[in-house]
């Protein structure tokens, strides 16, 4: 449905987006995450047609819309967009905002569409309200309904939750995912918050300095990060040094591990191994112990920072009732499902 081929975008010869490729099928929800300034919003605006691209091509439903020498105007692309500030029209009420993009429909069709969309986003009684009478979350849903009304080929969402309260965000993200799935809409969202991305997307792209670092499912991103940046950006964790015993086995201070993937590593190579907080299981019966140097209470869990006897630090996510004081030695066990190695 959406196909991004080797797209680059430059301002005054400075590449902001560099040689990016990905594609989405009908109904798939993609998400671009990355630190601010990584080029994710620029890429989204290029898909909408607000930014020209300097190389590559963008096509929507098989039709080329952007190329190095071609730019189809945004109003001719049939893309829907939900803006960071929602950009709802304050002089129109909710119903008129939603039907704004339906200029060629009859009055009855417009009314039916507005009703159907308000039902869908869960605001059936607010059609006559003005925007200033709505809460932030309600404005968000109206913005979504307005973008969906003309039945766009692809829906773009630019940091759609950033102006909402933190406790609203994940719930709303899941709700919107549900709506988009019902409509079988192809969508791309941009965010800097990985939890939003995980709640929303089928497939996530991690961007840094204009490059797409990895394009994969949330599960893969967390457990099989393609490089150090992704490993560091997604989730928590530390990198422990290790030495390869052969192409598959690695020796660390926490023991010996086997990686299941083929690699070019050889015996004696120095590597680093990714240890997530949930890879280290707190076990009072274990004879491997570590010193608690820091703890953060998280309700159901406690996140400990531990110093191993060898001096390295790791994090450990323990159940909440395993409450230990700083300075205590606690037993740990390594439960490593996915061995992720980066050559040093």
């Amino acid at each position: 449905m959406l196909n991004i081929q080797k797209v680059s975008i430059a301002y005054a010869k400075h590449n902001v987006v560099n040689n990016i490729c990905f594609s989405l099928d009908q109904g798939q929800i993609g998400c671009l995450v990355g630190p601010s300034g990584c080029g994710k919003t620029t890429l989204l605006r290029a898909i909408a047609g607000f930014e020209p691209i300097t190389a590559g091509s963008i096509s929507l439903a098989g039709q080329a819309v952007s190329a190095a020498d071609m730019l189809l105007a945004p109003e001719q692309r049939q893309v829907g967009m939900v803006f960071q500030d929602f950009a709802l029209f304050p002089h129109l009420n909710v119903a008129d905002n939603i039907s704004f993009g339906l200029r060629h429909s009859t009055k009855a069709n417009k009314a039916a569409k507005v009703k159907q969309l308000l039902q869908l986003v869960g605001l059936p009684d607010l059609a006559q309200r003005y925007i200033y009478q709505l809460s932030g979350g309600q404005q968000q849903r109206v913005a979504l309904a307005r973008a969906l009304a003309p039945e766009p080929k692809v829906l773009l969402l630019d940091e759609p939750f950033s102006s909402l309260d933190a406790e609203l965000r994940e719930g709303l993200a899941r709700e919107i995912r549900h709506i988009l799935q019902q409509l079988n809409i192809t969508a791309v969202m941009v965010t800097h918050d990985q939890n939003e991305a995980f709640a929303m997307a089928d497939i996530v792209g991690v961007m840094q300095q204009g490059q797409l670092q990895q394009w994969a499912t949330p599960y893969e991103l967390y457990h099989k990060p393609a490089n150090r940046f992704v490993a560091d950006f997604i989730g928590r964790g530390v990198l422990l040094p290790g030495t390869m015993l052969d192409a598959q086995q690695v020796q660390t201070n926490l023991g010996r591990f086997v990686q299941r993937y083929s690699s070019a590593l050889q015996a004696g190579d120095k590597v680093e191994i990714l240890i997530r907080p949930d890879d280290i299981v707190h076990d009072d019966t274990s004879n491997v112990t570590a010193l608690v140097v820091e703890k953060a209470f998280r309700g159901s869990h406690i996140l400990y920072r531990l110093t191993l006897n060898s001096g390295e630090q790791v994090q450990c996510l323990a159940l909440s009732h395993h409450n230990h004081a700083i300075g205590e030695h606690i037993g740990i066990r390594l439960d490593l499902d996915h061995v992720v190695l980066f050559p040093k």
Binding site: G49, A73, P74, E75, Q84, A87, L88, G101
Partner: peptide, 15 residues
């Protein structure tokens, strides 16, 4: 007037 208002109009196919 916010720049995104014009952009919103254009994604809703207004010149």
């Amino acid at each position: 007037q916010s720049a995104s208002l014009l952009e919103a109009s254009r994604t809703l196919s207004l010149s």
